[in-house]
Amino acid sequence: MKTGPQPGRTIVLSDRQRLAWLRLIRSENVGPATFRGLVNHCGSAEAAIEALPELSRKGGKTAIRICSLADAEAELEAHARAGARLVAMGEADYPPHLRHIDGPPPLISVRGNGSTLANPRALAIVGARNASLAGRKFAAQLAGELSQAGFTIVSGLARGIDAAAHEASMGFGTVAVFAGGVNVLYPPEHASLLERLLAAGGNAISEMPFGWSPRGRDFPRRNRIISGLSLAVIVVEAAKGSGSLHTARFALEQNREILAVPGSPLDPRCEGCNHLIRQGAQLITSTADILEAIGNRAAPDLPPELDLEEPSWEGPDGNLPEDSARARLIEALGPTPVGIDELIRDTRLSARAVHVMLLELELAGRLERHSGQRVSLTS
């Protein structure tokens, strides 16, 4: 039986392993959680790639697209030409807090040679794109003072609050998280800001494929990375239903602190912040308030990350579950999300069998994963 990861343990992928990891995460219906499940079940990314056709067939899909070796090599070469690199979860320069979130990206694209990603004292500052002048000035003040106090400032390089936070902190360390590929700038008018950010020792990162143009659904994925990198999320001006509130929701799920700047009830750009405060977020009006809320912590209070590249369940890996077990699991599933532990108890199947069958269904495009280790059948 596998023991847990040792504190401070790091891995170093060989070129062959990095290509296998890239091929696996770029294959059809393989997301971060599925990636980890496949590697833990099969023992390595290479073995998981070999198992994809049979696993997807068992889930009800006759063919699955597997990223070719040529495509993976081309993406690595494109990274190198752009001065970027792929960093694997568990490697020394993978962001320390990101590996603890639900479904951490196994590979991230990184631009910049600074040490900002390794700093455990990272804070996110997010807010309205159409921010007021006062909001932008206050975000810049917080970012500048916090970065001088030794914090890395994380944001999404968007207009408004994000840009103000990056601008004020770039001399001390800032990280911009992209919704598309790490070479696809959005908004495009921030090219100069990005160039200066990188030149000052900051980093730009993304979990998306190189060259990927961001879609609407990709921005929430980016927001979960912003909160996942950080000890706390600071919200400065946010309208009701804004992306900044999505970032705060991810922060809550990831057990990060949520700090909000109050605003006028007459300004719709402050409605989201005021709502967060009513819901229990800490009200902050100065850098001192933030420092008091964070204290001396250098890490969230979270469990250790799961290992990769070795099996995580007891018993031989060669035997797939019987069809009767699959029928029992599918009968227990439905469109309403349910916890995996609850499925195991209800079906009275082994944990290993349930995890394998969930992988089969997900590879076949029949399963959707939700926060809190919950799953549902797709409609």
Rank of each mutant, 00 (worst) to 15 (best):
T3V: 15
T10H: 10
A20F: 02
V30G: 04
V39T: 07
H41F: 12
C42W: 02
G43P: 00
E46M: 05
A47D: 08
K58L: 15
T62A: 15
C67E: 06
E75D: 14
L76G: 15
A80I: 14
A82Y: 04
D93F: 05
Y94T: 05
H97I: 13
H97T: 15
L98Q: 11
P105K: 07
P106D: 03
A128G: 04
G135R: 01
F138D: 01
A139N: 06
A143Y: 00
Q148W: 10
G160H: 00
D162E: 07
A165R: 01
V182I: 09
L197W: 09
L197C: 07
A204R: 00
S206L: 05
S206M: 08
M208C: 12
S213C: 13
R222G: 07
I234V: 09
A238N: 00
A248L: 00
A248W: 00
L252R: 06
E253P: 00
C270S: 12
I277R: 03
R278Y: 04
Q279C: 07
S286F: 08
T287M: 07
I294C: 09
L302C: 11
L306K: 13
L308R: 10
D317G: 15
G339I: 00
R348N: 12
S350D: 07
R352A: 11
A353K: 04
H355N: 10
L361S: 01
E368W: 01
